[in-house]
């Protein structure tokens, strides 16, 4: 149902133009600051247009700071391993739940559903991961806690299988002597590509953006992801402000990257998302629409 009169359309377009500006302008402030000459930045502050254009922050980041390159490596590695494992575990778990011949499917569906209603929270999880599984300062700490499986995605995948995989097809494959793993691999997966893409993107985004696991479990700088590096800078700024003038503070100040470089790190952290996003927008929207309302 569209508004037919012209002035109505113009008004709507103006409103939406304002909304889109509101959505992206803050990013512009970030990006523009990262391209501004340091002295100008200190004098004039952050602004939407670089007063004096400069690439110094980026040149510095990639030439003299291995930290950022390594952080990027960690982020990419964790995102890849995490996403692959997550999609694998989720698919393998969801498929039996969708089979009517599987006698325990109601029990296990409830088993998943219950994790969405009730959880132990930070304190017991933290104790368990650190004291029972000793994952502090290991790569696993960035992959396992919390992010690997999500009840929503399992239910989403199960519903997709239920609605899109014809029973007759599975039955026919069975008669042809195809095993369950074979059916999943040769029949179910090729029919489920859009759902796999959607879940991979959502999970991948979760891993890319994750800073909490680093905050909880990582103190070793070698394992700092991009988000963890950004995080450390915040705590150094905070530390400086709370202990101004002391001798410890000057040490932290020396560690603190200049104003422009800080913003450049943040830009580098979001760049891959912003570059990839427009091409996969369809799948993100699908994930929101399917996952947001009842699974």
């Amino acid at each position: 149902m569209v508004v037919k009169n012209k002035s109505g359309q113009i008004a709507l377009n103006i409103i939406f133009t304002l909304l889109t500006i509101a959505a992206v302008a803050p990013f512009l402030l970030l990006v523009s600051s990262s391209f501004t000459d340091e002295a100008t930045l200190v004098r004039d502050g952050y602004s939407f247009l670089p007063g004096k254009f400069s690439l110094d922050a980026y040149i510095y980041l990639f030439q003299s700071s291995m930290k950022i390159v390594k952080g990027y490596g960690i982020t990419i590695l964790v995102t890849l391993i995490g996403t692959v494992l997550s999609v694998l575990f989720t698919t393998l778990f969801a498929y039996p739940l969708s089979r009517k011949e599987f006698p325990f499917r109601y029990f296990f569906s409830f088993f998943v559903f219950f994790t969405m209603l009730f959880n132990g929270g930070l304190v017991p999880s933290y104790m368990m991961w650190t004291q029972t599984f000793h994952i502090k300062n290991t790569l696993w700490a960035l992959i396992f806690p919390g992010l690997l499986m999500n009840g929503f995605y399992i239910i989403m995948m199960r519903s997709f299988f239920n609605a899109n995989i014809p029973d007759a097809l599975v039955e026919a494959a069975r008669i042809d002597g195809c095993g369950e793993y074979g059916i999943l691999w040769k029949i179910v997966l090729p029919l489920s590509k859009p759902m796999m893409a959607t879940i991979s993107l959502m999970v991948g985004l979760g891993y890319w953006n994750d800073w909490m696991n680093s905050l909880y479990y990582i103190t070793d700088e070698k394992l700092f992801s991009i988000q963890a590096i950004l995080n450390t800078i915040i705590s150094n700024i905070q530390f400086l402000q709370s202990s101004q003038g002391s001798s410890v503070a000057s040490g932290a100040a020396a560690d603190l990257p200049s104003v422009g470089i800080r913003m450049a790190i943040a830009v580098i952290g979001i760049l891959p998302i912003l570059v990839i996003y427009p091409f996969f927008q369809k799948y993100f929207v699908k994930g929101i629409v399917v996952g947001g309302v009842k699974g």
Partner: peptide
């Protein structure tokens, strides 16, 4: 465009 802020981590 209006979805972009949703994609960014709280740290950023």
């Amino acid at each position: 465009v209006i979805l972009i802020p949703f994609l960014i981590s709280m740290v950023v």
